[in-house]
């Protein structure tokens, strides 16, 4: 429906959604927020299967955090107890459920932002008076995240092919392996960043110099609508939660 919306509207929408996700307190508001995020995904022309797959990939980590929250948060009514000791409380269950909703909304917002093209993102940032260097850094970082993930996957695969059975490995050994794998990925990312900065400078890139842009971003009626809608949703959210 709004898949060709101005990037500024998309950035604003994701800003509203992630802020609400972090501030949400009421269970009903969290559910409504999840529904609103799903509606935003559909409106921006994003197939919800994508964020859903990301969530499924994150499920094991989320499960561990959720279990920890269920066991450690002691507020509310006791739901399950053993030998007179309260194990699961409503507060713990609520904290775990909120965490899952928050991660889901943030993943969905990541998908909305990743649909914005590199040049459009820079133009949007510039029009919002964000310093070019910072906007460029953010855009480059986002551009190379999938590559970084691919490199880490390659390193982990190489470790597994050489006998590191990650699935059966203890948590300490697994964390040690991840930290070892992070090292070459970080080194490669840094050397790539260095290579790109040289290549850009050799082609005359100078963020300090004044420049003109061939492409211009234009806000349409549907783009402008996103702002009052976002503000109304945010205000209603604050009233409902606080």
């Amino acid at each position: 429906m709004w898949s060709d919306m101005d990037p500024r509207s998309k950035i604003f929408a994701t800003l509203c959604l992630t802020s609400m996700a972090l501030l949400v307190r009421m269970p009903l508001a969290a559910l409504l927020l999840a529904a609103l995020t799903a509606a935003a995904l559909i409106a921006f022309g994003i197939d919800p299967k994508g964020p859903l797959k990301t969530l499924i990939r994150l499920a094991p980590a989320m499960l561990v955090v959720a279990v920890l929250q269920v066991l450690l948060v002691r507020s509310g009514r006791t739901v399950l107890s053993a030998f007179g000791i309260g194990i699961v409380t409503t507060g713990g269950l609520g904290a775990a459920a909120f965490m899952v909703v928050r991660v889901g909304i943030i993943a969905a917002c990541g998908y909305i932002l990743s649909g914005i093209g590199f040049a459009d993102f820079l133009l949007a940032m510039k029009s919002m008076k964000v310093p070019y260097e910072i906007a460029f850094m953010a855009a480059m970082g986002a551009k190379f995240l999938p590559l970084l993930a691919e490199e880490m996957t390659d390193s982990l695969t190489s470790a597994e092919l050489r006998g590191a059975d990650i699935k059966r490995m203890g948590i300490i050994r697994r964390l040690r392996l991840y930290s070892e794998v992070l090292m070459p990925a970080t080194f490669t990312a840094l050397s790539r960043a260095e290579g790109i900065s040289w290549a850009l400078e050799l082609r005359g890139f100078n963020p300090g110099a004044g420049r003109t842009y061939w492409r211009k971003l234009e806000m349409r009626m549907s783009d402008w609508m996103a702002f009052p809608l976002g503000i109304i949703a945010f205000a209603a959210f604050l009233l409902a939660n606080y």
Binding site: E151, D154, S158, A159, L161, R162, P184, T188
Partner: peptide, 16 residues
């Protein structure tokens, strides 16, 4: 991996 050893196109990715 006991049967197939791989040297990747970009070996720096597999050096841990």
């Amino acid at each position: 991996g006991k049967h197939v050893g791989l040297v990747m196109q970009n070996p720096s990715r597999q050096l841990i």
